[in-house]
Design a protein around this nucleic acid. Structure first.
Lengths: 336, 336
DNA sequence: GTGAAAGCGCTAACAA
DNA sequence: TTGTTAGCGCTTTCAC
């Protein structure tokens, strides 16, 4: 690979001039030189050494994405369509803005901090981070951060979040179930924090408004840990005997549950209705096609990058953005 | 962020010594100094500037993954479970080896070349690349490359490939269909190159061995371009009238096709049997659960990184690795 | 056992 | 309009 210095030597001019031409500061260079240099740039197929440039400019042109993932829950988090979509959308938008995309998956905050510091990452995007985790990173990393799907309390710290109307989603779906005559509804998730908690809140709200007394037995928190889901599924099956509908926190679980119930001889939506959340790529091609809450994951990623870019441009801190949800009615919920 | 120089100044010693301690070359440093330095390293929470290190060492510690993707076919390629799994598995293995993972999606080879050159990427992994594309990159990038799922001719160039016994997969599944009494079988894919072509070859082989005359009408190449798949699906439906089984080149298509047929009032596997390929995360939770050809995508990614690391260590060029396939019998194929 | 100094490739302030 | 030069933070050779 040719260097600026070498090119400068060939032409017997200074590196500054070459550098200026490279950066299009042609106003400071005579037309003749510009042409000479450009010809040579072409000829030698000059490619800048980004490490050198970064070092000189004290930046990196890297947008980092840190996925805070626990191996117990996700053997391979990117294989999950939700995270996969997010990764793809963010990479695309980052590239569009002439930055580079570096992915780092870890369940160790200090590892993530070391990574962003070492690389001098220009901006960071992270998903589902809670208060303590965010504070730790913030303490050591001073450049722009955009959180996705975070519900860390806003009063304690100042951050930019791109989220979803999770509570609204929980609410409209539950309302829909109720309107279809369901009163005994189970809520299925794998934790009660952040996003899932808000969906649950929406669920509770709709249930309350309908004057239904919610039996805590019907809140089923299944274990995502491999080897333990079998037990959880028995619990789900049991619940399916006493409810008429199950609202799952994600399409993944909705599919798993549907599958499990079929395997045990029940029919969906004949015996029990199932609703999901996300509207992932399989929601429409499974059978029964899933009635679910739609969210635009690609947009989530794109918006996150847009916010980051605005911050990088030095604009005033952007506001949070809460993306809307909508219900997608398909075939997994029946009218009673 | 503290620099080595600053730490050296504080202690009134040279940067060399600090650097030596950092790199554990403690044999060259007195115990007393080692301890002094280590204490300071801790205290100031020293984090190396990777850009500087890379510049000095003429490397990058980055493993690049280039996805050669066309927007027509994939709006978001990482959202596809196959590519998502690959990305996740590769990132994980890269991290395990103390490298960093940079993803670059593009349909422009020269852009990819510019990217790897600029960053001085230490090793590159790329998927489904053909002969010309590979040659272009090879011409300008001299560091290790591992291809995944490539069928570029081996005689022309020297490269390392991690692939799958695609032909075998096509063969065993077709044989299974035939054993179950199917003789009119359609083959469905979206191209006839590389991986898909080999699966088709396996298909043809099994069909031939059974003495079945294959009617080219039953080779259906559907268009992946959005807006054109509807037309393709009509063709599929038409074919479903005259065949008893359809072998789809991917689970994605198998699900889409199944769904389409159901939508048009047919039953799977009642009216027509469907087989897939990949055994992706949804194959087992859809209904009917998909009879398909299993491949270990995570392993593909892991092995690719392992090969790259071996090359980086300067070991003799590793040999290609062809991962095995196996059939997974579920409910989408029925015995005639 | 320790340090001085050159150099990686590029940028940018300043001088000419 | 063009060139000189210092410096980004780190590694590494060589001398002491």
């Amino acid at each position: 690979m040719v260097t600026i210095k070498e090119l400068a030597n060939i032409l017997g001019i200074s590196t500054t001039t070459v550098s200026n031409v490279i950066h299009g500061k042609t106003s400071e260079v005579s037309l003749a030189t510009v042409e000479k240099v450009q010809k040579l740039l072409e000829e030698y197929d000059y490619t800048p050494n980004i490490n050198a440039r970064n070092l000189a400019q004290n930046r990196s042109k890297i947008i980092g994405m840190a996925l805070f993932s626990n191996e117990d829950k996700y053997k391979n988090i990117v294989a999950d369509p939700f995270f996969g979509s997010l990764v793809g959308a963010i990479e695309k938008e980052v590239r569009k803005n002439n930055y580079f995309f570096m992915l780092y998956v870890s369940d160790d905050i200090s590892e993530i901090i070391r990574y962003v510091s070492s690389w001098n990452v220009d901006g960071l995007i992270t998903v589902g981070m809670n208060r303590d985790e965010y504070l730790k990173i913030r303490g050591r990393y001073k450049k722009p951060i955009v959180l996705i799907d975070s519900y860390a309390p806003k009063d304690i710290m100042d951050y930019v979040n791109v989220g979803l109307d999770d509570e609204g989603g929980g609410y409209i779906m539950t309302k829909y179930l109720i309107e279809n005559g369901h009163r005994e509804i189970a809520f299925i998730c794998d934790n009660l924090e952040g996003v899932d908690y808000m969906r649950y809140r929406g669920f509770k709200k709709a249930v309350g408004e309908a004057g239904i007394v919610f039996d805590k037995k019907n809140l089923i928190i299944i274990s995502p840990v491999e080897g333990e889901t079998a037990v959880s599924m028995s619990e789900v099956y049991e619940a399916a005997q006493r409810v008429t509908a199950m609202f799952c926190c994600s399409d993944n679980y909705a599919l798993q549950v549907t599958n499990e119930l079929f395997a045990r001889g029940m029919d969906v939506p004949g015996d029990v209705s199932i609703a999901g959340f996300d509207d992932n790529i399989f929601a429409k091609v499974c059978r029964p096609a899933l009635t679910t809450v739609y969210q635009d994951v690609d947009r989530k990623g794109t918006v996150a990058v847009e916010k980051l870019m605005a911050m990088l441009r030095g604009e005033e801190n952007p506001k949070d953005e809460i993306l809307p949800v909508k219900i997608v009615v398909r075939d997994s919920v029946r009218k009673l």
